[in-house]
Amino acid sequence: MAQAVDTPGASRAPGGADPLIELMGVHKRLGRQQVFREVNLSLNAGETTVVIGESGMGKSVLLKHIVGLMRPDRGHVLYRGERIEHLPDRRMAGIRRDFGFLFQLSALFDSMSAGDNVAFPLAERTDKRKAEIKRIVDEKLRMVGLAEIGHKMPAELSGGQKKRVALARAIALDPSVILYDEPTTGLDPVRADTINELILKLKREMRVTSIVVTHDMASAFKVADRIVMLHEGEFIFDGTCDEIRACADERVSRFIEGRADADDLRSLGENGS
């Protein structure tokens, strides 16, 4: 399966089972940037797929297409075999119940305590009583190791704590898919590793399908079953951790080793002279 993918349509989930999520021939342009050029991707249930790529290559845009926050210019997005890219908001809201989304900036509601943030989807999407909601909130906060901070406001939390509360909120409705947008960005290595462990724990305990967008290769190698690399609107790699380490494609190896290319170095030289 190790491959540098040069042609669209090659990024397929391994195993042959019916994919849970599929992107088929997706095109997307934002302003002058062609973010996706006929992108194809299939994701199997229970798998953790890490999407890597340079900043501004459309990794977060990919996640937003999967949950219908953005719609493709052309092509299809399928969830459990059903096309969802054209669904109206009301239908889409029902499908989004299956998804948990950890946003890059955590996106906790500033005006609510940590506990109320976690309770929000339960209060909005279920008819559970307050006592039941409180029990679930306590359970989810315990799962992310923050049992005692339910009363605190987001402004009182550290960056790592915010991510964990946001994760507790993302899993409040027991989703079958969790989307992580840069889960370790802005965290020190120890806090980042805590988040990685949480991703593994949630996969183990909740058997969720995970899609992790990151450019943190330590995190990618730790949590990934499969890594795909997005570059200039196309997937240029699809394979396992071992396979990406052995990949001969210069663009892939340079990214995973964190090496600037000749153009970057040249521009630095010119600016500095």
Partner: peptide
Amino acid sequence: EQLDALRVMG
């Protein structure tokens, strides 16, 4: 992204 968070939570 709090508006997106609201949308995602239905």
